[in-house]
Computed example of a mutant assay.
Amino acid sequence: MSDNQHVDSTAETLSLSDNVCFALYTAANALVRAYRPLLQQCDLTYPQYLVMQALWLQDGASLTDLSRATKLDLGTLTPIVKRLESKQLLARHVDEHDERKKLIVITAEGAELKQQALALKQVLLSKVSVSEAKLDELRDLCLVLTEDLNR
């Protein structure tokens, strides 16, 4: 077999799913699609859910804090915060230590939504055959990959 024939036969056995970027892309899309009907029950989009999760972890965050936590830029984050505020799930207040800064706080309605929304994780876990330990490992690898690529 010549080198050209070997290369051709090897190329024929390759597929898009051999690429890490393709596997991550399709997995992320599948995850967001799986979340969509569950989040509709909470009247949230996935980016809104990320913002609420960040606030459930750190209530009274600034827009900059939320941007850092969610990895959403300020131009994307601002309309999401406004939409959540119109749904009365959060409110923006002037920081008493720096009146130029606004802090975003969860309302009573936003706090009530927490248990319902966080239960969605268990619903999704019941749909996958991957163990929670493997999912934790996958999350850690994705975070390392993100950090490495953002350097």
Rank of each mutant, 00 (worst) to 15 (best):
L143I: 06
G110M: 04
V81S: 02
V123F: 04
C142R: 03
T13K: 11
A91V: 12
E112A: 11
L141E: 09
D18T: 03
D18I: 00
V81F: 03
V105G: 00
T146A: 13
A119Y: 06
S15I: 02
Q88C: 05
K127A: 12
D136F: 03
R36T: 15
V94L: 10
S86Y: 06
E85R: 11
F22Q: 07
H97Q: 15
A91L: 11
L125S: 03
S86E: 13
T78M: 05
T26Y: 09
E96M: 10
V32M: 10
K101N: 08
R139K: 12
A133H: 09
A30M: 13
L90W: 06
S86I: 00
D136H: 09
C142V: 15
L31R: 09
S15L: 02
A111C: 07
E147C: 06
L103S: 01
D3S: 10
L14S: 01
E85K: 12
A11E: 09
N4Q: 12
Q115S: 15
D59G: 02
A61H: 03
D3A: 13
W56I: 04
S67E: 07
Q48L: 07
L24Q: 09
D8A: 15
D95Q: 08
C21A: 14
H93N: 04
A11R: 10
C142L: 13
G60D: 08
L141P: 00
F22K: 06
A119F: 07
